Simulated scan of single mutants.
Amino acid sequence: MRKGYWIANVTVLDARRYAEYQALAPSALAQYGANFLARGSERVTLEGNTSHTRSVIMEFPSYEQALACYHSEEYQRAKAAREGAADVDVVILEGL
């Protein structure tokens, strides 16, 4: 079974409201076996047009788990709390 990865690029617009997302998301991510590989703001864009200020890479036990987590009721509640508080791009990728 191939692992799954979330790659997220984020720009926080409202830190107070984004904190609501940060309070809800960890329990949803843990239920699906998420493991943070990289998270932070120190990065450099060498190609492309991304203007986000933060990047996150998470590993899941499988691609299916990564997708199930994103679509889960628990994560969707966290995502709803984040609405308008951040600009976010998320890609879910199947590992090799």
Rank of each mutant, 00 (worst) to 15 (best):
N9I: 06
E59H: 08
Y18G: 00
Y63P: 09
V10K: 03
A23V: 03
R54N: 01
E94P: 15
A23I: 00
H71V: 09
V91E: 06
V12P: 08
S27E: 11
P26K: 00
Y5P: 03
P61S: 07
Q31V: 00
F60Y: 06
S72L: 14
G4P: 02
F60K: 10
T53M: 08
V91L: 15
R77Y: 01
L67Y: 09
Q65S: 12
A81N: 10
L13K: 15
D14M: 11
S51K: 15
L13C: 04
V56E: 09
Y70K: 03
V90G: 10
S41Y: 00
R16K: 14
V44Q: 11
A68V: 11
T50M: 04
Q65M: 12
R2Y: 07
P26M: 01
I92E: 09
A78Q: 01
A68P: 07
V56W: 06
E42V: 12
Y21D: 05
G4A: 09
M58A: 08
L29N: 08
F60C: 03
F60D: 06
A23C: 00
H52Q: 15
T53P: 13
H71K: 13
G40T: 11
G84E: 02
D89S: 15
N49W: 07
A8E: 08
R43Y: 10
V91Y: 10
Y5V: 10
L93Y: 12
R2V: 13
L13M: 12
T45G: 12
Q22E: 10
G48P: 07
R2T: 14
G95E: 05
V12L: 07
T50K: 07
W6V: 04
H71E: 14
V88C: 04
V88D: 02
V10N: 09
A86C: 10
R82H: 00
Q22K: 13
N9K: 14
V90K: 10
L37S: 05
N49A: 06
H71T: 08
S72H: 04
D87R: 14
I92H: 03
A80M: 08
G95M: 09
V56C: 01
A81I: 02
N9Q: 13
A86D: 04
A23F: 02
A78C: 07
R77C: 09
S72F: 10
A8I: 05
R16N: 11
Y75V: 02
K79M: 14
V90R: 03
L37A: 10
E64L: 14
R17D: 10
A15S: 15
N9F: 05
R77I: 12
D89P: 00
